Amino acid sequence: MTSAPVGVPIADELVLGALELERTERGVLPHRLPAWARAQCFDGQGEGAQLAQAEVQPAGVRLALRTSATRIELDVLRTRKMIRGVPPRPDGVYDLLVDGELTAQATATGGDVITVDMTTGETHVERGAPGTLAFAGLPAGVKDVELWLPHNEQAELVELRADAPARPVPRDGRRVWLHHGSSISQGSNAASASSTWAALAAISGGVDLVNLGYSGAMMLDPFAARVMRDTPADVMSVEIGINLVNADVMRTRAFTPAVHGFLDTVRDGHPETPLVVVSPLYCPIHEDTPGPGTFDIDALREGRIRFAATGDPDDVKAGRLTLTVVRDALRRIVEQRAAHDRNLFYVDGLDLYGPGDHDELPLADALHPDDAAHHRIGQRFAKHLVTG
Results as ranks from 00 to 15, higher is better:
245 V>Y: 06
196 T>D: 04
250 M>V: 01
249 V>S: 09
231 T>E: 03
219 M>L: 14
222 P>M: 04
221 D>R: 14
190 A>I: 08
191 A>F: 15
187 G>P: 05
255 F>T: 03
220 L>Y: 02
190 A>R: 07
247 A>P: 02
232 P>R: 14
186 Q>N: 11
206 G>F: 01
194 S>Q: 05
216 G>I: 12
236 M>V: 01
251 R>L: 15
236 M>I: 11
206 G>I: 10
254 A>F: 05
225 A>V: 08
211 N>G: 08
194 S>I: 07
224 A>M: 13
237 S>W: 02
258 A>R: 08
234 D>N: 08
217 A>L: 06
221 D>E: 13
190 A>Q: 09
197 W>L: 07
232 P>T: 08
221 D>W: 10
191 A>G: 15
209 L>N: 02
242 I>C: 02
228 M>A: 00
217 A>C: 14
222 P>Y: 05
256 T>V: 15
186 Q>D: 08
191 A>E: 12
235 V>C: 06
209 L>F: 07
244 L>T: 03
212 L>H: 08
200 L>E: 13
201 A>S: 12
195 S>E: 13
255 F>Q: 09
188 S>D: 06
199 A>L: 05
220 L>W: 02
252 T>R: 14
244 L>S: 03
235 V>I: 14
247 A>S: 14
245 V>I: 15
247 A>W: 10
215 S>T: 10
221 D>Q: 14
222 P>W: 03
227 V>C: 00
222 P>L: 03
203 I>P: 07
248 D>Q: 11
232 P>F: 10
222 P>E: 00
195 S>R: 15
228 M>W: 05
258 A>Y: 05
234 D>Q: 01
219 M>H: 04
194 S>L: 08
259 V>Y: 11
192 S>P: 13
243 N>M: 05
200 L>F: 00
197 W>M: 08
190 A>Y: 12
247 A>K: 12
232 P>E: 06
221 D>Y: 04
235 V>T: 06
253 R>M: 11
234 D>S: 05
246 N>Y: 15
229 R>G: 02
197 W>G: 00
235 V>G: 03
261 G>A: 12
207 V>M: 06
208 D>S: 13
204 S>I: 00
190 A>M: 09
199 A>W: 00
211 N>I: 04
244 L>I: 09
